[in-house]
């Protein structure tokens, strides 16, 4: 697989996720050191910033899990009054961040976003 087609596959994975869950505000794939690889946002969210923050959240989440003996980190979330961010570990190299509105169908999100995370992990 060339790196060009990897990029396309990742972009397509994000598109599929957003089509399945149109209420999403956006989604992004980044490297674990915080550089954006693929992104799709409805607004003018700064992808560079979210990529770095997703990497920070993942790094910190891993350490928290280590300390608590909770095993390998799979996902973590940050919740506010007006929205949520879910951060998924995608293999050793990447991270998937999904930004949702406050009232989100979490069951559906879990199914779709975990699927997407698996695809991203395979591609990277």
């Amino acid at each position: 697989m060339t790196s060009g087609s990897k990029q396309e596959t990742l972009q397509a994975t994000l598109q599929t996720l957003r089509t399945s869950l149109p209420e999403l505000r956006g989604a992004l794939v980044a490297t674990i050191d915080g550089l954006p690889i693929a992104q799709s946002f409805s607004d003018n969210t700064d992808a560079n910033r979210v990529a770095a923050m997703a990497a920070t959240a993942l790094g910190l989440g891993k350490r928290i899990n280590d300390t608590l003996g909770a095993g390998e980190l799979t996902e973590m979330s940050v919740t506010g009054a007006d929205g949520q961010v879910f951060v998924y570990a995608t293999g050793r190299k990447g991270v998937l961040a999904v930004v949702t509105p406050a009232a989100m169908n979490l069951g559906l999100l879990n199914i779709e976003a975990r699927d997407a995370a698996q695809t991203v992990a395979l591609v990277l």
Binding site: T31, I32, D33, G34, L35, A52, A55, T56, L58, G59, L60, K62, R63, T67, R92, K93
Partner: peptide
């Protein structure tokens, strides 16, 4: 030390970098 090293994907002259 509580550290948060991640593999570096750009050339920064070392293998890992602090993310948090």
């Amino acid at each position: 030390v509580v550290s948060t090293e991640a593999d570096a994907t750009e050339d920064i002259g070392k293998a890992t970098t602090t993310v948090a």
